[in-house]
Amino acid sequence: MDKHTGMTLIVKMITQVMIGFLLVFGAYIVLYGHITPGGGFPGGVMIALAYILLTLAYGRKVVESKISGVAASIVDDLGALLFWLVGIIGLYIGGRYFYNFLGKGEPFNIFSAGTIIISNIGITLKVGMSLYAIFLALAILQRVVTEEEPKEEGE
């Protein structure tokens, strides 16, 4: 990893340790969205925050080499399409938009409540990556503003 940009050692190391756990926790929130409080939106926000934390610690360049803005928006679109597809397949199979075409399953198991888990995954991809893309976009805008301002020399 790049040692010379971003914040101090402490922030970087803690970020490195924590990011995986954040992702796991986000996934937990998403996948248990239908049986405990949570769901696609909070989980997606959490996953986006993992990457936003990485951006804050290491700077934009390092993170963009992992997930570029283009890749983020592709994943974002795919998530939205997945959600859309759940609705359309329901319309095709059950005659109702968003008809629950999968079995209901045993309550309180992870594979229950039919299509909700798939929709949640779609929402997660959409929300997570859009939030990350919004963050990147605003960070880029910020950079343009500061470059136009006459900056004081030093450091």
Partner: peptide, 22 residues
């Protein structure tokens, strides 16, 4: 079911944070 999903999630998280992990 939970263990299976856990294995998948842990694998994905591993793949995503490969070079970040100290």
């Amino acid at each position: 079911q939970e263990v299976m999903v856990g294995i998948v999630v842990a694998l994905i998280a591993t793949a995503l944070t490969r070079d970040l992990f100290p």
